[in-house]
């Protein structure tokens, strides 16, 4: 039964959850603030990107301590899928489009995603190999085995 309760609702962790919720409220406020600033100044970036940059800068400079935000941030990231679900159910609202062009949309997304993944993974691996091609590794006959 216990496993059907989301991890963040288990009683043993309620105190931590309390702290996390306060921190999430803080992150929510930062996001709202950044969205407002973006709208107000007509900046060409989304509020959430401005928020990432702002919080990152504050953390790097030490103005904001990691422990002030990390529990809330970790909880949001751990349960990230949950926040995607309502928009994904939104596919219902596009039922006519999906009935008519559904297979095309799926084909574009599927082929496109495979392309993106092959290019990204392949290029990253190639750059990684090029940067790791040191003399020591070159001399080693079992480079493939070692690299893993």
């Amino acid at each position: 039964m216990r496993s059907f309760v989301p991890s963040f609702l288990q009683p043993s962790r309620l105190r931590d959850v309390g702290i996390a919720l306060v921190q999430i409220a803080g992150l929510y406020a930062v996001t709202a603030l950044c969205n407002a600033v973006v709208r107000w100044l007509h900046l060409p970036v989304p509020g959430s990107i401005l928020g990432v940059a702002l919080v990152f800068a504050l953390l790097q400079s030490g103005i904001v301590k990691l422990r002030w935000v990390e529990q809330g941030a970790d909880l949001l990231i751990r349960e990230l899928l949950l926040f995607f679900i309502p928009s994904s159910v939104g596919v219902m609202a596009y039922a006519p489009l999906m009935r008519q062009d559904g297979w095309k949309v799926v084909a574009v997304v599927a082929v496109g995603t495979v392309l993106v993944m092959v290019v990204t993974g392949g290029v990253a691996e190639a750059v990684w190999r090029a940067r790791n091609r040191t003399p020591r590794v070159e001399q080693n006959p079992s480079r493939e085995a070692n690299a893993s």
Partner: peptide, 16 residues
Amino acid sequence: LTSLLGPATVAFAVPL
């Protein structure tokens, strides 16, 4: 829940 996607994106400043 969807409105938490914004803060969840900002939260990525922490792993960054």
